[in-house]
Design a protein around this nucleic acid. Structure first.
Length: 420
DNA sequence: TCTGGGGTCCTAGGACCC
DNA sequence: TCTGGGGTCCTAGGACCC
């Protein structure tokens, strides 16, 4: 069995690269792509990173750069990015045994057994550039975490591909140069706490006592250490796992205080989510509506809230989902509320086609059992071939303990047939 | 004045059941 | 007055990712 070998392919400044395909004047310039309402920066070109412009900064904070022409700010076009992403992924799929599409601009490839992984990835890079026109960086390593880390190093590498050495002094030297915050899975919070322990670099983390990490940060923390040591804890998933939730949310352009405005926004989000669910052939068991105040405004009254409605039968029908809007608004609205954001999440997703099945299964089971009993009894008594027919109805059973309903099936026998 | 949107996983604690 | 322990389900909240 070959030692596992993975590659992480990452599109460079993906949204900016997409925009550059159709606007050559954006090349070699500092470019940023903005979020939905042109609110803040969600992508930066290499030149913009150098200035530096931080990820996520609001547009007004870099207004001077934009006004002076030093930085070009571009509105986003997610349909375009989604389309180009599919093309990039399709080209890359041919270069590994299997592929896991991790995000819109990244995928893992399984290179296990490839005698020349570095050459293969150089070719992959060329092909993507040739067929789609998007520049990519490739990191190669024995675990996802190391491949990811290598892909960051690849961005500064002239060949655009970087291969992680096997665990040993050479790898240790590399990890020593990587700040903790660049390690996949270590965010701001955990990074800060680890810093208090004197852990500053990826090497410090790889050498940390794993039990200490496990006690303080759980299994996810311990996994990061193992992966940095070359022990794979995260498998490549070539089949995308089934979706668990669908969210639609938006910030308001300006604060909302009116009940009707809140209802209107929620209704719009529900309609959009219903479309998404039907598009993916999924039905929801529950719908959560949430509202938030402006978290940057300390004077805003506390009016955050969430309310969940559970459906007796999973649904993706706009009308059925929309019917919950009024009760949600009623629960969440308050006289002095000033809201900045509203959204809805569909949860408990089940396959639309399988849903029909699971809905019928219990009925069939009940019916079949009752039928067999009835037939046994009658046929035993009368020595004849008898069978009963009837209707099965679905009703709800209230569960006070968790404020939910569960389905109840009732069968009503109404006919006695004699079989020939 | 102006600050995105969509996900996942893990854990702790409460309620319930046997 | 005494009043178990183990398992499961559910939810809220925290942390992370792109």
């Amino acid at each position: 069995m070959d030692q596992q070998l993975l590659a992480l392919v990452d599109c460079n400044s993906f949204y900016v690269s997409c925009e550059r395909l159709f606007a050559p004047k954006l090349r070699n310039r500092a470019v940023v792509v903005l979020s939905n309402n042109d609110g803040c920066v969600v992508a930066r070109s290499k030149e913009a990173k150098k200035i530096p412009i931080a990820m996520g900064v609001p547009l007004y904070q870099i207004k001077e750069y934009v006004d002076s022409g030093r930085v070009i700010a571009q509105s986003s076009n997610y349909t375009l990015y989604g389309d180009l992403s599919q093309r990039v992924m399709a080209v890359l799929a041919a270069f590994g045994r299997s592929q896991e599409i991790y995000s819109i601009d990244e995928c893992f490839l399984n290179l296990t057994g490839d005698p020349n992984p570095f050459t293969t990835m150089q070719l992959a890079r060329q092909r993507v550039a040739q067929y789609v026109g998007i520049p990519v960086s490739v990191g190669i390593g024995p675990t996802k975490t190391l491949a990811k880390l290598a892909s960051e190093l690849a961005k500064d590498h002239p060949l655009g591909v970087f291969s992680c050495p096997s665990p040993g002094p050479e790898l240790a030297a590399i990890l020593h140069g990587v700040p903790l915050s660049d390690v996949w899975g270590i965010g701001a919070r955990i990074g800060e706490k680890l810093s208090d322990w004197g852990v500053r670099t990826a090497l410090d983390l790889a050498r940390l006592n794993i039990h200490r990490m496990r006690d303080r940060f759980g299994v996810t923390g311990a996994r990061v250490i193992e992966e940095l040591r070359g022990v794979s804890c995260m498998d490549l998933q070539s089949e995308p796992p089934p979706k668990q939730s669908i969210t639609v949310s938006r910030s308001f352009g300006e604060q909302v205080t009116e009940r009707a405005d809140l209802r209107s926004a929620i209704a719009t989000h529900i309609e959009r989510a219903a479309e998404k669910a039907r598009g993916q052939r999924l039905c929801a068991t529950s719908l959560t509506t949430f509202v938030e105040r402006n978290r940057f405004d300390a004077t805003a009254p506390q009016c955050d809230g969430a309310y969940t409605v559970t459906f007796p039968v999973p649904t993706n029908l706009t009308s059925e989902l929309l019917a919950t809007a009024d009760v949600c608004v009623q629960k969440l609205w308050q006289p002095n509320g000033r809201w900045k954001k509203a959204g809805i999440t569909l949860l408990g997703l089940v396959d639309q086609d399988a849903q029909q099945q699971s809905f019928l299964d219990p009925i069939d089971r009940v019916r079949a059992q009752a039928l067999m009993q009835a037939m046994d009894t009658i046929n035993h008594k009368h020595g004849r071939n008898l069978v009963r027919t009837g209707t099965t109805t679905l009703s709800q059973r209230w569960r006070p303990h968790n404020n939910r309903c569960s389905p109840r099936y009732t069968t009503c026998w109404d006919e006695l047939l004699v079989l020939p």
